[in-house]
Write a protein that binds this DNA or RNA. Structure first.
Lengths: 117, 117
DNA sequence: TCGAAAGTCAACGATATGGTTGACAATGCC
DNA sequence: GGCATTGTCAACCATATCGTTGACTTTCGA
């Protein structure tokens, strides 16, 4: 069982690369074979294969062998982990906006908005 | 001007480290001095300083010199970039759930739910 | 059956990362 | 003034990352 922290690491890291994000975006349009994925990138198929391994180990992608081809499928549920992580801060950045507004406009609004713990 | 892609890279990368996420979470409770941040981690202040530089260059944190101390402040707005990026896939993973349900339950529900582009 | 196609594995190289230690500049305090 | 405190910089080390090329296995098709 992989603990939550290292899973977050993997997903964040997997998405911290423009090539891999492009692969993900491509896969959002539908499944594809590895070579189809490698095609638009000027990169060796080996490089793409490695990127797909990173995505797979992060749980963002699954593979299914079909004859001598391999079909790759997006598994966007894995993004839920980081989405949940972000949720904790979502209220924060709107609150920050409020505080900024307050700074600019002066404390006209009543201060009953709780600061999150 | 930094283009959108490399900004995403930086933010994703910055958050792909458990120490830095811990720093962020700590800063969510309020501003802190660098030494205060270094305190709970069994790590040299230099290491923490480096992490903070990564966070700062990703726009997740700002620093303000106060005498010989430096106050660090969270800037959660930077997370908006990746939140927006995720938004594109948010509908996706719920749709995938629907497709899964359909697979298990059989096609009982009418198929008027659009597949996103 | 033989050759081309799809994909992975292994080894290599250049560069980035995350940590260390030691030195240093700037500030505050006595 | 002199010394401790805060933080960064520089150099170094071990390891990871991202790409390459070459070899290999498996599968398809003529």
């Amino acid at each position: 069982m992989v603990d939550e922290e290292s899973r977050l690491d993997e997903v964040f890291r997997a998405l911290a690369d423009p090539t891999r994000r492009a692969l993900v975006r491509r896969l959002a349009e539908g499944d594809a074979l590895v070579l189809e994925l490698a095609q638009p990138f000027e990169m060796s198929k080996q490089a793409v294969s490695k990127h797909l391994q990173v995505l797979e180990s992060a749980g963002l992608v699954t593979k299914a062998v079909e004859g001598r081809s391999t079909r790759v499928q997006l598994r966007p549920q894995a993004m839920r982990d980081i989405s949940n992580w972000l949720d904790f801060y979502r209220s924060f950045w709107t609150d920050s906006m409020d505080r900024l507004v307050e700074l600019v406009d002066g404390p006209t609004r009543n201060a009953d908005t709780e600061v999150p713990r």
